[in-house]
């Protein structure tokens, strides 16, 4: 005996409102929502996360950059100010000793008979000092004091150093003293100085 089973009706019923298939449109709407949600979850959200991370990093770095730049500008400004204030000293440390010019400068205070160059030595890390022995004649000790006072304004950095010898001769005083000229160490200049001795 054969039992006939009726086939189940799997067909989606069609509901039309004003000629629109409601079920199909509802299906497409659901599909649209699913695609949108999936896109947000797997495409847009990671992109926003990545973007936000990079944006935050950028602004952090930019703040850091502005701080560093500000600091740099402050240091540069203070350096320029310092250079301006000490321009005379900076320039003086870069000048070579000019015997003729020194004689001319000292002639206001003494009559220089002889300037003898001695040795050049390194001084501290970046400087050199050259020793000169001077034989001169002065009218009174005041000339010597004035000479020392005037050295402050001279274009080179000069130190008056011992031994100093005062010998009275007639109405004048014979003076022997040592001076040290300080300047920046310039490798070429130092080699030239060393060769000269």
């Amino acid at each position: 005996m054969k039992i006939k089973l009726s086939k189940p009706n799997l067909k989606i019923p069609k509901i039309y409102i004003y000629g629109i298939d409601v079920i199909k449109n509802l299906g497409f709407f659901t599909l649209y929502i699913i695609i949108t949600l999936l896109s947000i979850a797997f495409i847009i959200a990671p992109a926003i996360k990545h973007f936000k991370k990079n944006q935050k990093q950028y602004y952090n770095i930019k703040t850091q950059y502005l701080n560093v730049k500000n600091n740099y500008e402050n240091v540069l400004e203070s350096l320029n100010k310092l250079k301006k204030e000490n321009a005379k000293i900076i320039a003086a440390f870069r000048r070579d000793f000019d015997v003729k010019n020194f004689k001319m400068f000292a002639s206001k205070f003494m009559e220089i008979k002889e300037i003898k160059k001695d040795k050049t030595k390194p001084f501290k890390k970046d400087f050199i000092k050259t020793v000169y022995f001077i034989k001169a004649t002065i009218n009174s000790p005041k000339d010597f004091y004035d000479f020392i006072d005037a050295i402050k304004k001279y274009k080179n950095i000069i130190r008056v150093y011992f031994p100093i010898d005062f010998t009275k001769k007639d109405k004048k005083i014979n003076l022997t003293l040592k001076i040290e000229h300080y300047r920046l160490k310039d490798k070429k200049a130092l080699k030239a100085e060393e060769k000269a001795h």
Partner: peptide
């Protein structure tokens, strides 16, 4: 720049030290 600044301070200190020593020599004499 900071190194340059420090170097200027060093030069200034040396210059001032030399000038003080010159004044001392004058005072000693």
């Amino acid at each position: 720049l900071t190194l340059q600044k420090e170097f200027i301070y060093t030069q200034k200190a040396i210059y001032e030290d030399i000038m003080i020593k010159n004044a001392l020599v004058k005072q000693q004499i």
